[in-house]
């Protein structure tokens, strides 16, 4: 699987799906529209500053709240290549896997990485490198079943390809 590298946007505990994509935009369903409002209620400059490949790092329970898949969709469509957090809310976790947005749980990385650092991630090994500070961290690897879904770029492709066989 691929690797990612980008500048970090750092947030705290319990970043909920209402601030990732506020309900007032939920009448849109396209990634492009949703990306325009990604993180708007927690960081109004996020969409101005985020570049393709950038990385979100947060503390515990990232993505708590509503089941809206619009949340990981907006993050992915905004160009974010990976979200690293101490822990993820479970619906957000499975939604991300199902749509093929890479996410990694790693407490140490979430503690040590600062806003604005450049970070690279090797998905095969789960190795996270803070290129700004030179520190490395070992993220939790996915169970093989989830890895297969991510490799297929999402659940639908995975189901389609397993039915073909």
């Amino acid at each position: 699987m691929k690797a990612a590298k980008g500048t970090v946007f750092k947030y705290g505990d319990n970043v909920d799906t209402d601030v990732i994509i506020p309900a007032r935009y939920l009448n849109s369903t396209t990634g492009e529209e949703l990306a325009k409002h990604c993180m708007e209620d927690i960081d109004k400059d996020f969409t101005k500053n985020v570049k393709k490949g950038d990385i979100i790092v947060a503390e515990k329970n990232f993505g708590c709240g509503s089941s809206r898949e619009h949340a990981p969709i907006s993050i992915k469509a905004a160009g974010v290549s990976c979200v690293i957090a101490k822990s993820f809310a479970r619906i957000f976790y499975r939604n991300s896997i199902n749509i093929g947005l890479p996410i990694i749980e790693c407490e140490e990385a979430a503690d040590a990485i600062s806003n604005g650092d450049v970070v690279s991630i090797d998905f095969d090994s789960g190795l996270i490198t803070d290129e700004t500070t030179g520190k490395t961290f070992k993220g939790q690897a996915f169970p093989p079943f989830m890895q297969k879904i991510i490799d297929s770029e999402g659940l639908i492709n995975y189901i389609n390809s397993s039915e073909d066989k």
Binding site: G65, S67, I91, R94, N95, N98, I99, G154, L155, I156
Partner: peptide, 29 residues
């Protein structure tokens, strides 16, 4: 259910849980 409060039906002794839209699509199919 593609709604986080799907867990409500546990009151009746069901196992019910919220999932996202892709899971819903896969479930429907």
């Amino acid at each position: 259910g593609a709604d986080s409060h799907t867990c409500t039906y546990g009151a009746l002794g069901a196992f019910s849980t919220g999932i996202g839209s892709t899971d819903m699509a896969a479930g429907m199919a």
